[in-house]
Design a protein around this nucleic acid. Structure first.
Lengths: 186, 186
DNA sequence: CGCGTAATTGAAAAGTATCAACACTGGTGG
DNA sequence: CCACCAGTGTTGATACTTTTCAATTACGCG
């Protein structure tokens, strides 16, 4: 549920601090701020340096589905840039965050010139596809209780870090159901 | 549910027929043949030239979840190659198919040398992530009836092309539920 | 303190799975 | 040519799971 990408973070941090890449900006945001808003154009790739964001897709009034929670090193905005479409998710800071920002044109330059960066991107996207597919498959084929157990095993401090509303929206269930299952587990 | 990628197919067909790329092999398979088996090592990228395959993840005896049905131009095997992990899906021909096959080392060569191919790959993976995310989100947030309606609207000849068992496993429901909803729609 | 958001819990309603019986189809062998 | 078989599809009854609705409590913050 909380994804990280140390390899990419280390590489981008090195690029940034080398000074050779002034196009890599470092920025901050407060908890609750929206970095990307659903159905708008995206002009940059973002990589989280510290903190967490949630990436969610609103359906209509009130309900939304959490695609993923991104932690250190996870990039976002790349899908909109590569597919050249409007964002399908809103990305909102869960904690105060700092992040790197690379504009679309600079990103395209970087991909052309830096083969290591290019292959990190390919690897990152492949890993996103794999992770999402496994998660989707697991969710569909197991009971809520099993899904929750797996989540708690992977992230023991989940309940401290993420609100129950968000956990429920990540699992695609109501908070009522989440509470019932949590009570049964205990 | 049935994905295609005309742009990639055209490009690879041109590479193949130019004769400059003898590493791009053209092969065939009968309906029911498995091109990739779950939990095995994958040594090549495959691109469908004609026909359809289903990509599914088995849980335990009997039950499986269909990730996606791939049609013309859709690649598979790229995730295993880029993440360097065992396959999490079995890829099985639904119809007789013909496909292109590029070995891992040749693929890496091609990515380095051919910037257009590289950017087609980036775009393809971004589009897979986006599509999967939207599908997952939609499935979780809508009723079975709405999901089925959307599927039938997108693929009017769905019931002729895909078996009900496979459709149910794609939606993550039982065949019994699928039949009930289909009856209500009519 | 008061306000809005998040969390908790029960009861009823709706949705889905499970189980089981049976129909339909295409291919195989006696 | 027909009987059989395996795989797929159909349908009803029942049990189980999840949602919906509603009422109440807890918490953080200006």
């Amino acid at each position: 549920m909380i994804r990280v990408n140390t390899e990419l973070l280390n590489y981008v941090t090195r690029l940034h601090s080398s000074g050779d890449h002034p196009m890599i900006l470092e920025k901050d945001a407060k908890a609750g701020e929206k970095i990307i808003v659903q159905k708008t154009k995206v002009f940059a790739l973002y990589i989280i340096k510290s903190g967490m964001v949630k990436c969610y897709h609103s359906i209509d009034t009130g309900t939304y589905f959490i695609q993923e929670v991104f932690g250190e090193g996870e990039p976002f905005g790349e899908i909109e840039i590569f597919t050249d479409e409007f964002s399908f998710c809103t990305v909102e800071a869960l904690t105060p965050i700092s992040y790197y920002k690379i504009s679309k044109t600079d990103l395209e330059e970087l991909i052309k010139k830096d083969k290591i960066f290019n292959s990190l991107l390919l690897k990152m996207m492949a890993s996103k596809i794999r992770y999402t597919a496994v998660r989707h498959s697991y969710n569909q084929s197991h009971s809520l209780e099993q899904n929750l157990n797996r989540l708690m095993a992977d992230f023991p401090d989940l309940l401290q870090k993420i609100s129950k509303t968000d956990i429920a929206n990540y699992l695609g269930i109501t908070v009522r159901s989440l509470n019932r299952v949590l009570k049964n587990l205990a």
